[in-house]
Amino acid sequence: MQKFEKLTGLVMPLDRANVDTDAIIPKQYLKSIKRTGFGPSLFDDWRYLDPGEPGMDHSQRRVNPGFVLNQPRYGGAQILLARDNFGCGSSREHAPWALMDYGFRVIIAPSYADIFYNNSFKNGLLPIVLDRAAVDQLFRETEAMPGYRLTLDLAAQTVTTPAGKVFKFEIDAFRKHCLLNGLDDIGLTLQHVDEIRAYEARRRKEAPWLFTS
């Protein structure tokens, strides 16, 4: 997993609630057996005016100039500012893969869907929760000021605006630790092989039907 420590990056506002994973990366791209290459299809239905299919040259497609991602002032954005319940819907990890592949490293929203939130951490994408008032303020400032950049400090758990206003955010200690160090969960779990085996031995006695098929 990619490490995350600090970042100062351009912010792109996506002013809709309940952005679902079908909107983040439509189903036709889920046929891929890879983890990469989803960036050009991020927000496909909103971003392009013509229908997209896997394998096509997306640079030749008709872009929707009205969609925020296509506005030149947000080119190269690394921080996505979003509304409530971002990432609702399916468990597809292709959603964080597409956001990362496009270049986003951070999302800021008042809330996230549980599975998306969890999947993001597994990929080094940092989903920050700030309260609605703070998010409203960031939307106003981002839209008012071209080139608006925020500074994220994971160790300090802070978001700092260009004017120097600091917002603190909460994050689970375990997730923070993994993200700061780029740790692989599987490696961590395999440090407890003996405990897993002991659990299995006990369960085989208590509930042997769980081990018969």
Binding site: R35, S91, R92, E93, P96, N119, D185, I186, I196, E200
Partner: peptide, 14 residues
């Protein structure tokens, strides 16, 4: 439901 990283985690560690 789980994501693909967790699918791998379950395959590898149960």
């Amino acid at each position: 439901g789980i994501g693909t990283s967790e699918v791998e985690h379950v395959l590898a560690t149960q």
